[in-house]
Nucleic acid binder design. Structure first.
Length: 835
RNA sequence: GCCGGAGUGGCGGAACUGGUAGACGCACGGGACUCAAAAUCCCGCGGACUUCACUGUCCAUGUCGGUUCGAGUCCGACCUCCGGCACCA
């Protein structure tokens, strides 16, 4: 009945998968009243095939889900599909396949692959972004945001990818190129819909502090992305030709108000409105216009922007420094960005590298106003580099002598009083542009009416369905523009004929709230029931790739906060613990089609089984590190499972009949007590490593050790061993459940276990078996190990010292020297300090 | 440039709050079984030196310092690699 594991793993795995499915084992909740545990993995795009990165991601999540379930938690472990997006549209253009069919086919194929891996998902909760019962709530949220002024339409220069023919969010521009197709991004003026994420910038930034269950690097990346900086805005009055105030002001943002007496000119961005007020007469105007035109043509975020030569031109405008009264010229230059701050700066060349570079190039004055405390006065000659640190003010009128800190405070107060300056916090993050000129996405629920303007589609008319018959050719703008039946719509307000918005939403909208929907996936009247969501939230563990550190993981925090403010949830932060798993590499680089180093999960499952494939991804490296795929390592994991099989299965019938040992059985037999101690030590190690540290490689190592010791144990079998072997076998079967669930079930059942292994309580630790009869005390002389003593745990220090001194090596190292002191850690270590 | 993370055998990696560095696995070497091979099992496996041998000594966690009875672990400086951001005022 046994047979080799090598010949049987496929049959075993399929059989248990069928049983789990037949029993709805993983549907939740099945055991209400238990403490919930929400275990979430980032949902995949349905490309049609699983890759090893998916397998790794889901193996980690599944190990935790199974472990927590056995530990008595009620586990929510769902899966779904991020199924809107470009590839479906591209496939349609290339092969003529309708996106909906292409997507559903891919989902079906990948769902089968996930099931063949034996992952414990509750498939009754499956969601897919492209289905109307999901995306209607994207539309609903959009309307709710519109009501709260969190969504708005604005004509803006947007990042435009000419190849994808679409707008990209800032987050989707990587080094000036499209994150998807890598072609260069240019600027284009379009009417766009935006979500006002900047309203939450402060909270998104502040709460990073509390996300202690998140990796530092993710928190840092988000902090940089949000880019909070404290400073002040200062209004410089604009002067006319004769030096009189015109009533206009140039508002600049600075973090270094303390350096304002060193300001020798101002600079504005090419798009700054004040440029319209530049003097109209004479030749400079033409040069100025030409310059502005040239600068405006370029995209805001380009790779070479930082290293690009600074260029500028005098606008002819004059302003007055409200602190010093000095008159300053205003330049326009490429190094000042319209999107940040006020689009205008005061230039302090002595204390800012960029200002210095510009001043040098155009021969503008450089005036130091900050010196190092206790240092000499200001340098007579201009410094070689800008002095950017804080210090003490000089040549700064009444503020001279103050420290930078003190000066910023006092100057701020004076500015507030005089109405020309105020404290301001600035953020680098911009509002989230969500309009996409694509077909395969959520239609934006808006109708444009000549009389009423921009009118949201009423809730009762949702969803606005994506038409099935859009012409997908790959040329022209939005495909929806050409679907007459879609575009034509009556104004919900006045009934007159209007036109529908033909842009669709960025797919990051879909993935910003899907984890809420999992809690209540079939709700037809609301996106979800707040009570149900609050029962599961926050997500206890969220696992996914580091690639989503800024985009998805900021958007989903933003959505959670919006939902909280809509009264939909109590959860301000959706994710308690976040794990970003490393990449799967082959030959030192990420697996990719172009490199031809892809390892196919199906191939691995066919040759070694799902258990071995999963086990390897967990054993070869800790979750957060990159994992090098090594087929010999896979073999090693297979050998491990095979060895357990060969040890237990031939004895299974006898062990199934045997009783388990009583708690103190085997105490009197060193062989048996050593084995039982190892069993309980292993339970402890596996439990702590999964639960407290989320290390999944070391628990596997611990089980391997237990197996090795058991193999040793059966080499010289004795009658009456069965109960002890049964205990080891059952424990091993259960400890393996998170890592290799199929063989776990098979062994559990062969050893006479009732029900599913995954439904058993996690093996219980018997503290009595951790206590050793004898402990090994390490003896050090001056911190170096010289002897190992086996002593009863309670032996007093003096006696251990006496034993240690009697040891030949220890005695030799002490020599004739006197013992200055001893350090004793009970039962572990004795350090004898001599000298 | 700024900000993060990481440097441990031939390789992947262990070492919980400072306390025996190298668990476990891979690779490799030797042996057993076999006509042979595969599979399996046993032994060895950081380096240098030392002993006939049992052993023993020293060096070793990127580098250099420091704190400590004791440092892979803490502190300081530096080097290298990886990642993120990058004219953000």
């Amino acid at each position: 009945m046994s047979g080799d594991y090598r010949d049987r793993f496929d049959e075993i795995e399929r059989r248990w998968q069928a049983r789990w499915e037949g029993d709805s084992t993983y549907a939740s909740p099945v055991r209400p009243g238990r403490r919930p545990f929400y275990c979430l993995e980032m949902l995949p795009y349905p490309s049609g095939r699983l890759h090893m990165g998916h397998v790794r991601n889901y193996s980690i999540g599944d190990a935790v889900a199974r472990f927590q379930r056995m530990r008595g938690r009620e586990v929510l472990h769902p899966m779904g599909w991020d199924s809107f997006g470009l590839p479906a549209e591209n496939a349609a253009i290339k092969h003529g396949t309708p996106p909906a069919r292409w997507t559903e086919d891919n989902i079906a194929a990948m769902r089968e692959q996930l099931k063949r891996l034996g992952l414990s998902y509750d498939w009754t909760r499956e969601i897919a972004a492209h289905r109307p019962d999901y995306y209607r709530w994207n539309q609903w949220f959009f309307i709710k945001m519109l009501e709260r002024d969190l969504a708005y339409r604005s004509r803006r220069s947007v990042n435009w990818c000419a190849s994808c023919r679409t707008v990209l969010a800032n987050e989707q521009v990587e080094a000036g190129r499209c994150w998807r197709c890598e072609s260069e991004v240019v600027l284009k003026e379009l009417d766009q819909w935006f979500l006002r994420i900047t309203r939450y910038a402060e909270e998104l930034h502040a709460e990073l502090e509390n996300l202690t269950g998140w990796p530092d690097r993710v928190r840092t990346m988000q902090r940089n992305w949000i880019g909070r900086s404290e400073g002040a805005t200062v209004i410089f009055p604009v002067l006319d030709q004769r030096g009189r105030e015109t009533g206009d002001g140039l508002e600049v943002f600075t973090t270094r108000l303390d350096t304002i007496f060193g300001a020798t000119f101002c600079v504005v961005a090419a798009g700054h409105p004040i440029l319209d007020k530049a003097p109209r007469r004479g030749a400079p105007r033409a040069a100025l216009d030409a310059f502005i035109k040239r600068m405006s043509a370029r995209a805001g975020s380009r790779q070479d922007a930082a290293t690009e030569e600074k260029e500028g031109i005098d606008t002819g405008l004059k302003v007055r420094n409200p602190y010093s009264g000095e008159t300053l010229s205003v330049f326009v230059s490429n190094f000042v960005l319209m999107e940040y701050g006020t689009g205008a700066i005061m230039a302090v060349p002595a204390h800012d590298e960029r200002d210095l570079e510009f001043a040098r190039k155009y021969g503008l004055p450089i005036r130091p106003v900050i010196v190092r405390p206790g240092g000499d006065g200001p340098a007579a000659t201009p410094p070689a580099s800008a002095m950017v640190e804080d210090g003490v003010l000089v040549d700064s009128g009444a503020f001279s002598g103050l420290t930078s800190d003190e000066a910023r405070r006092r100057m701020g107060e004076e500015g507030e009083k005089g109405g020309f300056a105020r404290a301001r916090v600035n953020y680098r993050i911009l509002d989230w542009g969500i309009s996409r000129q694509r077909y395969w996405g959520t239609p934006i629920p808006i109708i444009y009416c000549d009389a009423c303007g921009t009118v949201p589609v009423p809730e009762k008319d949702l969803p606005v369905l994506l038409p099935a018959d859009a012409p997908l050719t790959g040329v022209g703008g939005s495909p929806l523009e050409r679907v007459e039946s879609f575009v034509r719509a009556d104004c919900p307000r006045c009934g007159a004929p209007g036109r529908r918005e033909t842009d669709t939403m960025d797919t990051f909208v879909d993935s910003s709230w899907y984890f809420f929907r999992y809690c209540d996936p079939h709700n037809a009247s609301r996106p979800f029931d707040p009570g149900i969501v609050d029962g599961w939230f926050p997500i206890d563990l969220y696992i996914g790739g580091i690639t989503h550190a800024t985009m998805h993981l900021i958007y989903c925090r933003f959505f959670s906060k919006v939902m909280r403010d809509l009264g939909l949830t109590g959860a301000g932060e959706p994710v308690r613990d976040l794990v970003c798993q490393g990449m799967v590499l082959k030959g030192g680089t990420a697996m990719s089609k172009s490199k031809g180093n892809i390892v196919d999960p199906d191939d691995m499952i066919r040759r070694y089984g799902a258990d071995t494939t999963r086990l390897f991804t967990l054993f070869a490296a800790p979750p957060v590190k990159d994992l090098e795929w090594d087929e010999r390592g896979v073999e090693g994991c297979f050998r491990f499972l095979d060895k357990i099989w060969r040890l237990l299965v031939p004895r299974a019938e006898a062990l199934a009949r045997a009783h388990l040992p009583a708690p103190s059985d085997g105490r009197d037999d060193p062989r048996r007590s050593a084995l039982r101690r190892k069993v309980h030590q292993t339970i402890q190690r596996v439990t702590i490593d999964i639960d407290k540290r989320l290390h999944l490689n070391t628990p596997v190592a611990a089980i391997m050790e237990l197996l090795n010791e058991t193999a040793e144990f059966v080499r010289e079998p004795q009658s009456g061993d069965e109960p002890f072997l049964k205990e080891v076998g059952r424990t091993m079967a259960l400890l393996l459940q998170p890592f290799a669930p199929h063989i776990s079930e098979e062994l559990w059942s062969l050893l006479g276990g009732e029900g599913f292994a995954v439904d058993q309580p996690w093996p219980e630790l018997d503290e009595d078996w951790l206590r050793e009869e004898e402990v090994e005390v390490v003896v050090q002389v001056n911190g170096r190990v010289r002897a190992h003593l086996r002593v009863p745990p309670a032996l007093p220090e003096e006696e251990i010292l006496a034993l240690a001194r009697a040891d030949e090596r220890v005695a030799a190292h002490i020599g004739g020297r006197t013992i200055r002191k001893t350090i004793y850690l009970p039962g572990r270590l004795l350090n004898i300090v001599v000298g």
